[in-house]
């Protein structure tokens, strides 16, 4: 394969690999902007993945599958919201617990429906939306205008989130809750409501992200199929400095890393595949290193808000 062939293959695979991290990271961005760290994303993604898979398998509707996955994610994050916002519990511990629950429960649900079969069942994946004319443009045509619907949805959500967070009263209120909930409350902004809304939104997005993995990308469910994507999403929020645009850029960079390591793995068969597979994780370490201490995190991140 020549260089341009490789390049095209990598570019084509970039957005599909980016989407799950992208969606989850956008949700986590809102979460953290309001001052709540949700480490349960990984588990919630898995729950979204299994929920979407089961729904699509039995009811043959990708749309319903996505909606149900989002709602499952929302329900899961409600637990985190209750513990960290209502009970002022430790957000790290609560998030870790949710990660475990989602991690295990997704496998349990799978086994309950499909047993411990060797060959996993599969569902057809949702196709891509081809925008007429534009798709036929050389190279960029296929990449930018022939993507999965979730690609366009991710872009729309990015734009919408940025506008809401930085161009509306709601967004300012939300960010003020993340900086100093006491100040916000005195000014008539309820930290509890804003944090609940944010956490639930984050859960919904993580659910969608999981659904994309099964219904959108692979067509099957595998145990622990996220393999750290939820945590990479959390890392991207730091990289993106709590700004949806930067977070999106980070997600696309990660899509590129995934695509590149998969592509190179298939080309350089003499190099053990493990060295390509570990790339996304090493890239995460590097990206966190690159952010360094420069970013200003919301002041109240991980701090429970205790009313006097």
């Amino acid at each position: 394969m020549n260089i341009s062939g490789i390049a095209i293959a990598v570019v084509l695979a970039t957005f599909p690999s980016a989407i799950p991290i992208w969606l989850a990271a956008l949700g986590e961005t809102v979460d953290q902007a309001s001052g709540v760290l949700d480490l349960g994303v990984e588990g919630i993604m898995l729950m979204g993945a299994i929920a979407a898979f089961v729904v699509d398998y039995f009811y043959h509707s990708a749309l319903i599958a996505f909606i149900v996955a989002g709602l499952v994610g929302l329900a899961f994050s409600a637990v985190h919201a209750f513990i960290s916002i209502t009970l002022n519990g430790d957000q790290v511990v609560s998030g870790t617990a949710l990660w475990f629950i989602g991690w295990g429960l997704s496998g349990v649900i799978y086994a309950a429906y499909f047993g411990l079969a060797i060959t996993p069942p599969s569902v057809p994946t949702i196709g891509s939306i081809n925008i007429p004319v534009l798709t036929s443009l050389p190279i960029v045509g296929k990449v930018l205008f022939g993507e999965s619907p979730l690609f366009y949805i991710s872009i729309l959500i990015t734009i919408a989130l940025w506008s809401i967070m930085f161009r509306t009263q709601f967004g300012l209120n939300l960010r003020s809750v993340g900086e100093n909930p006491l100040v916000a409350e005195v000014m008539g902004v309820s930290p509890v409501i804003y944090r609940y809304v944010s956490v639930l939104f984050g859960g919904f997005m993580a659910g969608l992200a999981g659904a994309y993995l099964t219904v959108g990308l692979t067509g099957s469910f595998y145990f622990d199929m996220t393999a750290g994507m939820g945590f990479i999403a959390v890392a991207l929020v730091y990289f993106g400095k709590w700004n949806p645009w930067r977070v999106s850029v980070g997600a696309v960079i990660f899509g590129l890393v995934y695509a590149l390591s998969a592509e190179l793995e298939s080309i350089y068969t003499s190099v053990p595949y493990q060295f390509f597979s570990m790339w996304p994780y090493i890239a995460t370490l590097l990206i966190i290193l690159a952010v360094g201490k420069s970013a200003h995190a919301p002041d109240a991140l991980t701090m429970p808000y205790v009313r006097e």
Partner: peptide, 24 residues
């Protein structure tokens, strides 16, 4: 003082001012 150091003066004044549905 109950001000947010990483917000501008105008942003600090704007917290909670007006309906949450409004644009900023």
């Amino acid at each position: 003082f109950s001000l947010i150091p990483y917000f501008t003066v105008a942003e600090n004044v704007a917290i909670g001012l007006g309906s949450w549905r409004n644009g900023l």
